[in-house]
Nucleic acid binder design. Structure first.
Lengths: 333, 333
DNA sequence: ATGAAAGCGCTAACAT
DNA sequence: ATGTTAGCGCTTTCAT
């Protein structure tokens, strides 16, 4: 059980070659003859040799690991399937590359310090950051680690150097175009917070689409992505624009609130008012009626973030990415 | 930026002591005089010294990390807030102990091999396993790593050596007792699969509670924890026992299906039939009526699993744990 | 209580 | 193409 693992030297001896050669084989280097390579591979197999990560990273000065840092109390991120999906995507790429994935929940001061320490101790070759809010201190900490950083989603102000994001604007446009295509004309929107990138861009997408169709863009209420906020905004919208026949709601959570208000006011959905959300949270399937919404390519987001990070670690120069969204038609629009 | 980190030797020099002493201080060892300790601590602070994990693990033969391995395609685990909560609990303890957390999705053959390699290369000091299904190959792989393993939840057959589980049986009993306390007498149950530990034990809890109250336990239908299964079982139950005035459903997903059938058959909830679920998934808040259910202490589960693992790593002999559940009263019962 | 010295198992630079 | 030689930065005996 606790049989000491064989070392590289033992493999070298068994294969009848030098340690240098074994090392070269283990790292797929060139300058190794076919027979030498074979001999080593056999020895490795026979001995069940697995290189020691610790020794390897000490000697090579790289860790063979990346860290995924999360400001976790952000429940929008953590709930739903978001996290599961993004992790799945990340894992796909991690598996291909033989890196390890370190998970750090860095919501608290303490967690942030941990991240800082890990980076300072060269505990990781790169950092993956998810859906940071405005001025999240994590960004600076990650940046100061001296290793590449890739953001999933982007803060409003300055776009990070390397990010992957969903096409919020395009998704919003897509949603409104669907509304238009199904005959709606008095289209309103409930926006998210306009100090968030997603909030702003979904609003811009709405405006773009109505403008393109020659419709008015005056039916607007602002909220905060929450269900309660969505309900309040829906009430406001209905009061100010009784003619409303469709509403693009910038998050599913808000849409749930909107649906409640609509029902309370005796408006049928989608009969009187069509409703379309954004995110495709699980709940969207279970509202009544089931919510038509815009789905983000979350697994792809994880995958592309990680690919980008791997490229950066290998000193390539990848470019930031925006991933397309998808319209999921259910019954509310 | 890429200023080389100071080494232990530099700290020693600056503090005017030997490397041995610095090492002892860094690891909170005794046999260090007050002044020596202080001098070292000052030097550490001034130099911003952070020990190299790689060197440390190479020299000490331990990794300073534990791995959380997941058979991820199990969506029951990954959806809801389960994952978020259990991770939060794990992270709490990890933070206290200065371990690192490695995440390995080991659903595929490839993922499993990765786990095996990590363990063989002494890449982790312990393994956390979550909610494995029957005969999951992960159990053996983890076991063969030569490091301690802690299970969250337990397989039906042989209980693992070290596990933390929720009190499925007690939770079920609690649910049924609530039904009884609110005046129900013709109580049925929709069980989960009886080849799963949770399935069996929730059923046992039901039987215990009705027996204790002198009620019959004949109103039973079996399903598979899924929404569709729950719907079918509800229909069956209603057909066979029209007198039913309450039902304990062994999972919220099934309860959602049951609620639909009840509505379809014109039975009001909780008027005609009270319904109580198990798990407290997010959706439970949004069914109509909102679902009364049994909540598992998921964050505590993560916390206790990790505590147990840490103890095992330190060669202590912790005992397995069963954590109490909580009744969440909403409107369906 | 502290210092000195010998590795931990690998990679990388330099020879050959 | 392969062998040789230093380390990588720490922990850990063993002395003292």
């Amino acid at each position: 059980m606790t049989n000491r693992q064989p070392t590289l030297d033992e493999v070298a001896q068994r294969a009848g070659v030098s340690r240098g050669t074994v090392s070269r084989v283990m790292n797929n280097r060139q300058h190794v003859s076919g027979k030498a390579r074979e001999a080593v591979e056999r020895a490795v197999r026979e001995l069940g040799y697995v290189p020691s990560m610790a020794a390897r990273s000490l000697a090579s000065q790289r860790r063979g690991a990346v860290v995924l840092a999360i400001s976790s109390d952000d429940s929008a991120l953590f709930s739903n399937l978001f996290f599961a999906e993004v992790i799945t995507g990340i894992n796909d790429v991690i598996e291909e590359t033989d890196l390890e994935l370190l998970l750090v929940l860095a919501a608290s001061e303490r967690g942030r310090n941990r991240l800082a320490r890990i980076l300072q101790s060269r505990g990781a070759d790169g950092v993956l950051l998810l859906a940071l809010r405005e001025n999240d201190p994590l960004a600076k900490i990650a940046e100061s680690g001296g290793v590449p950083v890739v953001h999933g989603g982007r803060p409003l102000e300055r776009a990070p150097r390397h990010y992957v994001d969903a096409d919020n604007r395009g998704g919003a446009r897509q949603a409104v175009e669907h509304l238009i295509a199904t005959g709606r004309r008095a289209i309103g929107t409930i926006t998210g917070p306009l100090d968030m990138h997603a909030g702003v861009n979904r609003y811009l997408g709405f405006r773009e689409a109505v403008a393109l169709a020659g419709l008015g863009d005056e039916r607007v209420a602002h909220a905060d992505f929450s269900q309660a906020g969505g309900a309040a905004a829906m009430a406001e919208l209905l009061d100010r624009h009784p003619d409303l026949d469709a509403v693009f709601v910038a998050s599913d959570a808000m849409a749930v609130g909107a649906l409640e208000v609509l029902r309370g006011r005796g408006r049928t959905v989608p009969g009187d008012v069509a409703v379309i959300g954004f995110n495709d949270i699980v709940t969207a399937r279970h509202t009544s009626p089931p919510l038509t919404t815009i789905r983000q390519p979350i697994e792809a987001l994880g995958r592309e973030m990680t690919r980008m990070l791997v490229r950066l670690i290998n000193d390539e120069k990848p470019t930031s990415l925006i991933l397309p969204t998808e319209l999921v038609i259910r019954e509310s629009a």
